[in-house]
Amino acid sequence: MSGKPLSPQELRIWHAFKMMGEDVLERVGRDISDATGLSGADFGVLSRLADLGKGQMRQQVLAQSLGWDKSRLSHHLTRMQQRQLIERQEADQRVVLVVLTKQGKAKLDAARPIHAESIRRNLLARLSQQQIETIVRVSNLLGEDV
């Protein structure tokens, strides 16, 4: 690896890339929060439980799917459990299951149409079909192992 600093153009590209994602995520998260009281992180946890785990997942698998470390997820789940959005159950001594509650499912169901509309308004409606296809190609390229 080179210790050479980024050029001004490289910095502009990096900042544009970061800001694009952060701005859209913040707007979508704010729309969900304003309408339902769920944070973007809450929505991420609940939607993964419902979509990937059919209502429950091992805590470690959930952390991996979110790209979060164990500590961050544990603290967040504690707050969600206090709000009765999820429950944690010990499957055995080393496995903790995170389970979607009825209240969590109801909040998720209320948030899904807001999430979809916000993505349409804050991302898709602002781009041409060609720009969307370019983003998908770039995302696929960057997601490949180097």
Rank of each mutant, 00 (worst) to 15 (best):
K105Q: 14
V95W: 04
R112L: 10
L85S: 03
L85F: 11
H115K: 10
T101W: 07
A111E: 08
H76R: 14
H115M: 12
V98W: 07
T101C: 04
E117F: 00
Q81G: 06
G104K: 03
H76N: 03
D109R: 08
D109H: 10
L85C: 03
A111I: 04
V96P: 01
T101K: 10
L97T: 02
H76G: 04
Q103M: 05
A116Y: 04
V96T: 15
Q81L: 06
R79C: 05
I86V: 15
L85T: 02
D92H: 13
H75V: 13
R94A: 08
V95K: 12
E90S: 11
I114F: 01
T78R: 11
K102R: 15
H115Y: 15
A110W: 01
M80H: 08
I86T: 14
E87F: 09
A106L: 13
Q103H: 12
V99L: 09
L100E: 05
G104V: 05
I114A: 08
E117W: 00
R79P: 00
Q81K: 13
T101E: 06
R88E: 15
E87T: 11
V95R: 14
L108Y: 10
L85A: 03
L85R: 01
Q81V: 01
A106H: 13
V98D: 04
R83W: 00
L108N: 05
T78G: 03
H115V: 01
A91V: 15
Q103D: 12
R94V: 07
Q93A: 13
I86F: 06
A106D: 15
A110Q: 14
T78K: 13
V98Y: 07
L97Q: 08
A91W: 14
V99Y: 03
E90D: 13
K102D: 15
K105H: 14
P113I: 06
A111Y: 04
H76W: 12
V95P: 00
D92T: 09
A110Y: 02
P113L: 08
A91G: 00
L108Q: 07
K107V: 00
Q84I: 00
D92K: 11
K102T: 11
K102E: 15
M80K: 05
R94H: 12
Q93Y: 07
K102Q: 14
Q103T: 10
A91E: 15
A91C: 00
V96Y: 07
A116D: 14
L85N: 02
Q93H: 09
E117V: 02
Q84H: 12
K105F: 10
L100I: 11
H115L: 11
H75G: 12
R79I: 01
L100A: 08
L77D: 04
H76M: 04
V95S: 09
T78N: 10
R112W: 03
R83C: 01
A111G: 10
V99P: 01
L100S: 07
D109P: 01
I114T: 13
K107W: 02
H75N: 13
E90L: 11
L85K: 01
L108T: 04
T101M: 09
L100K: 06
A116P: 00
E117T: 10
E87Q: 14
M80E: 08
E90G: 00
H75C: 05
A106E: 15
M80L: 11
G104M: 02
T101I: 06
E90H: 14
Q81P: 02
D109W: 02
A106V: 06
L108E: 02
